[in-house]
Structures are given as C-alpha cells and as structure tokens.
Design a protein around this nucleic acid. Structure first.
Lengths: 337, 337
DNA sequence: CCCTAGCACTCTCGTCTTACGAGTGCCAGT
DNA sequence: ACTGGCACTCGTAAGACGAGAGTGCTAGGG
C-alpha cells in the first residue's frame, strides 16, 4: 500500500470527520498540500475505492470512508492526540470529592459524555473478586426447586423456581452445562455468557432452561459489577441524520444493559483502548455506530469496563485518547480509595 | 359553553390524537355522526378558535387543539378508559416476583414505558420516614467546617466543606435560612427546594451558600427517595417530528434527575393523577410535552411519585388510566412486602 | 512509467412554476 | 339557527431546469 494512498486516506478520514460531507479530490489537494494534481489523487482514490476503503454516496459526490477505511485509519494512521490542558483539569476537578463508588461511576459517566460529547457507558467496578464456584439445584417437590449460586468467596445466593414436572435428569444435565459455562467467571462475565446461553444450548427442555437462567440472571443482577450506567444520551441528537436508519435501535440498545455489558466486555478484553467500528459490532442495532471502550480499575480485584458510543464518523484519535485517560484516572482514583 | 361545541372539541382532540393530522369540518361530521352540516361545525370551530381552544397550523388546514383545548378535554371531556384485560395481566405478571425495592422500581419503569409507549419516570419510594429535623454547621478552623444534617429518626449525616474565610455571622445566617426552608421536609422534598434555593436566597455570600447547598445535596443524594429512574426513552423516536423544536432539550431534561424530581413533586402533590400540558409545565424545555404523574405508595411512611412524559398530542384517557392503575398496583405491592 | 491537463458525463440540489386539493369564511336562503 | 354554495387561500406534490461539484477517461509530457 502506497505511502501517498495512505496519506490520502488519512486526509479523507480527517476531512470527512471534521467537515461532515463527502470530500472530493480538489479540496483534498488544497487543504492537505499533497504535491500532486487532483487527477492523480483521483486515480489513487479509484484504487482505494476498489480495495474497499472508501466509497461514494453517489456518482459525482466526493468519497467517504467505509468501516474498513476507518479501521485502517485507527490501526495505522491515527496519531494519538494528547488531551488538552483544559480536559486534564476537567477530569481532575470532576472526580475530586467523589464520595463513594456510586458517585464515582455517576461522575465518570458525566465526565466521559461531556468531554467526548457522545454517549458514555460505565460499568460498575467489581470491588470484591466475586468468582463463581458453582451452580447447584435442589429439588423441593414436583413443582418447585432452588437454584443456588456459590461464589469462591463463600457467598451463597439462592432463588426458588417453578420446575413444573421437569425430570431430574434434565435438571442435572442443565446444571452440568451451566457449571461448565460459568465456573471461574466473574459475575459480570457470567451475565454476558448467560445472555447468549439460551441460544446456544440444545433445547432439551427450553422452558426449564429459561426459568433457571432467568433466576441466575436475577441473582447476578444483585451484583454491582453487572450494572452499567449510561449518560450523555442527548448528544445523540447531534447525529440524528448520521445513523443510516434511525436512532431508535440505538436508543433501544442503550436501555438493554445486559447487551451493553456484553459489548463492553467483548470490546475491552484486550487491555488497551479498543474500537469497534460499524459492522464490526456483533450487535446488529449498533452497526451504524462505533464503540470505543477500555477496561479500567487497579489490581486484580477491582476492574470493569467503560466506553463511548457514537457515529462511525467520529474523531477517533480524540475519543480514544479521552477514553484512555479517563479509564486510567478513574482506575488510580479507585485504587487510592 | 355549548354542548355541541364541547362535543366538537372532544371530537377534534380524539381525532387529532389518533390520526396525527389536523382535522377539518368534513371528516369531523363523517366520523362522529354529528347531526349537523360541515358549515355549522365550521362556525362552531371559529368560535372555539377565538376562545383559544383550537388553532390552525395555517390557513386551509384543519384545526388542532391548543394546550388550553387539551386542558378542557382532560378536565371535562375525557371519559376514563378502563384498562384492557391484557394490560391488567401485564401489570401483574410484570411485577410478580420482584425481589427488592430496586427491582420493583426497575420493573415499574419498564412496565409504564411499555404500556403507555412513552417515557416513564419513577421515583424511588422513601421507605422510612426521613424528615429533616435540622441543619447544623460546625466551624473547624478558618478554612474548614462541617455541614451536618439531622433527621427526625435520629440519623445524622455530615460533610466537610471549605469556607475560605466566610464570617461566622454569614454562616449562622445561612444556616438559619436553610433551617427555615428545610425543617419538616422529606429528603426528596428538600432536594427539590434546594434546587431552587440559590436563586431565591439573597446572595450575601454566594460562594459559601453554593458550597453548603452542594454539600447538602450530596448528603441528600444518598437517600434513595431522591433518586429517579427513567425508561422508555426509545419511545421518543416515535415523536421526533412532534416536538416543535427538537428532542434535544427533552433528552437533556431526562438526564437532569433533580429537575425530574421537582416536576414529579409539583405535579402529583394533589393525590390523584395529575396532568401538566405543554406550557403549563414550569420547566421550559418540557413545554412542548405533557407530563402525567401520580403519587404512589401505601401508608404515610412509603410514598413517592411516578409519571410519564410524552407529546402534548397524547392519548390522555389511556395514559391517565394506566398511570393510575400502575401507581395503585405498585403501592399495594409495596405494602404487602 | 508515473503524473497531469483537459474534457465530456453524471448526478444532486436548489429554485421555480404549476396544478391540485383540502379547508376555510362568508353570504344568502330556508 | 342551520345549510348549501362559492370564492379564496395556501400548502404540497410534481415536474423542469440550470448550476455546480465531482468523476472517469484519454492523450500527452517529463
């Protein structure tokens, strides 16, 4: 891949992000002092388009980046933009004087939403290492049973369920599969796994499985690390035209906290700030948005994820820098008390 | 006010609500078997318009109700629409199996949002009668002091503040005014009052007042009854065109929980379901919406507010019936345990 | 071989015109 | 007091049209 082509792609991405409209060959050479003529740029653009990095909304319009184009930009072209002094100060003053975990999370959401001017999502930190040691079931009579969740810390939680005559074998089988899937996971992870469990599991006894999974979800729901807080939703109104279809699916997703939990988990499993661009998102209603996520926290016993959702046409360098900075700061802040 | 004019107003409101477009004299007589000619209806409509109950978006369009028209409709014309069987069942199954207060509130929000297909707001119930007995201040040194909040239950909460050299008199004066304003109030009410306190209070020492009020707000923020939960935001996307300006102010308001708390409190002070239509709302960004609210709870020691926000063009009878039913049901539910 | 200049072509967008139709207000008549 | 008739207004949909932006292609130059 040509150096100049990369430069052109970078120019297209930055220009499109800031100008909000398709960018043509002429303005490109003007604004970015590429020392070639528009015609040359056009040739390169044709190649870039053929390779799927850019596209034109219609003939006789400029080019806009595709998801693949953004991806290349994020991976190889984006120069990390350091935070402004004002932003650094904002982070500090915003977090100073936070009272408790609740308050920290609330403030973090506001902070993220405010700086990035996008929708912010913050998962509650898991303060104690709550690892699942096992799922038990105790049949009380023909109709009722107990679902019991045991944590490695020794904590035990239970919930009664209706089993309506399911056989002992089915119950044992289900329990076995649940244990296989859940043991060793944190509450938050378990929540994510359960969100997909019903689809994967062979429906030997679909009703029973649903009931048990629901009970487990309710138990896990009591764990703070399965909670997420969303803020900055009004920022979506700046992009009402961007999302190809409508905002509705996006808004709906933002109320599905289990889904958000899963997406955050998927995205930020790999240490540093991670980006999911458009179609890369596994969750279909968000495929016209991008997710920038990171884990945060300090030490093994206190960590969780946070992130930002916005249009694919997003200022990735800034957003990524902000998410990273906030994640680090909040992590340190929690560590200190 | 003529009987027939009232009938016409009612017809206009119901038709406009269901059809979503201005309604003219012709369709009116057709759909509502008024035994008069369109011309007669037109005359009546002219009068109704003159009196401010309806208006036309432009010449040669039908009429739509004004806020005043909706008001009359709600006060005198709306026939309470009983809930459908499905809705009753939905309420019961939705609430059944709620685990704790958190869960009840969450479910209530979902329920309200789902049935009314609008944005639902639910305030946490104040489970214990937390009445404020007084605000104290203790000066530690020239720079620092303690703000102390005493509840009638005997509970005491405090927070350190920076006073940066404010005089003892100013502090005492401020304390006096705060006590006058807050004693006898519930935490939630106090929160509402504080939200407006800084504007009303003479700014003898504005900085000090801000610091103290902030501290109190933070203390009160720990009380569950000052929390509200919002749900069903995606429903707003059905009305993107309705709100004359944009959705942005509405979305922003929905994140200002203190404001929501105040609005709910104002609206539902009077026992039964209350409606605030458009400009009747004291909070300007919501003046293109209507708020349907009610208090809920059982007994003196457990009550709070809930409600629904939607476009002024709203099915008031249904919405009011739903809000009332949900409020009652949740109240009973809480009373039973 | 790569770049450039020139040119014809395509498509969107804004503007303008026009025709239509819904709905009104008013007046004269029952 | 109501109704039928009628002229009038005005928003909207549909078409026409020119301007402008941007492209792809081709032929020529370093």
């Amino acid at each position: 891949m040509d150096d100049r082509k990369l430069a052109i792609l970078r120019a297209i991405v930055t220009d499109y992000v800031s100008m909000r409209e398709p960018v043509g060959s002429k303005v490109l050479v003007e604004r970015h002092k590429l020392d070639v003529s528009p015609a040359t740029v056009r040739n390169d653009m044709a190649v870039l388009e053929e390779e799927g990095y850019i596209t034109q909304p219609h003939t006789s319009a400029g080019r806009i980046p595709t998801d693949k184009g953004y991806r290349l930009f994020v991976d190889r072209l984006g120069t990390v933009k350091p935070l402004s002094m004002a932003e650094r100060r904002a982070i500090q003053t915003f977090m100073a004087g936070a009272l408790d975990v609740d308050d920290v999370v609330r403030r973090t959401v506001r902070l993220l939403a405010q700086i990035t001017r996008q929708v912010a999502i913050v998962q509650y930190p898991a303060l104690s290492t709550a690892i699942i040691r096992g799922v038990e079931t105790v049949v009380l009579n023909a109709d009722r049973a107990l679902v019991i969740l045991v944590y490695s810390s020794g904590r035990v939680e239970q919930r009664p369920i209706e089993i309506g005559g399911s056989s002992e074998e089915d119950i044992a089988d289900l329990r076995g599969r649940l244990n296989a899937a859940l043991i060793g996971l944190s509450a938050a992870k378990a929540m994510e796994v359960l969100a997909g469990f019903l689809e994967v599991s062979h429906p030997v006894d679909q009703v029973l499985a649903t009931v048990v999974v629901t009970a487990l979800v309710e138990i896990l729901g009591g764990d703070p690390s399965t909670k997420v807080v969303v803020g900055g939703v009004p920022n979506l109104s700046r992009f009402l035209d961007q999302f190809e279809t409508t905002v509705k699916p996006v808004l709906e997703t933002l109320e599905e906290h289990v889904v958000l939990l899963r997406l955050l988990g998927e995205a930020s499993s790999s240490g540093d700030v991670t980006v999911r661009i458009g179609k890369e998102n596994s969750y279909e209603p968000l495929q016209s948005t991008s997710l920038v996520a990171s884990s945060y926290g300090s030490g093994a016993d206190s960590w969780a994820n946070l992130g930002v959702v916005g249009p694919t046409r997003m200022d990735y360098p800034s957003t990524m820098a902000t998410v990273r900075a906030v994640a680090r700061y909040v992590g340190r802040f929690l560590a200190e008390g």
